[in-house]
Amino acid sequence: MSEAETTPPPPAAAPAPTVPTGSPTEFLKGVVGKRVIVRLTSGVDYRGILSCLDGYMNIALEQTEEHANGRVTNRYGDAFIRGNNVLYISAAEAL
């Protein structure tokens, strides 16, 4: 009886937020600040460091390289990508 009251609550799902649990939201939290590949529905890829993103999947990238049909076609220091164009975000380094 009293034991239940004194026992501290079990630790939350993950002690450190950097450990991904598998949910999409956790994944996105985990890749902020990491190297990512953003693929657009057009097939063009953007490789860079994910600065941040919002609920529409608008994305801010740093040190961005644009890859189209296997070649680097542009480089940007910073880039804002409008979320509706995003097909996926892929981690390009270990989380």
């Binding site: 600065s51 941040c52 919002d54 608008n58 994305i59 801010a60 910073d78 804002f80």
Partner: peptide, 14 residues
């Protein structure tokens, strides 16, 4: 959160 550039959401960049 990007401390160096103060960018917290993508629109900050714009």
């Amino acid at each position: 959160m990007d401390i160096a550039s103060g960018i917290q959401e993508p629109f900050d960049l714009i």
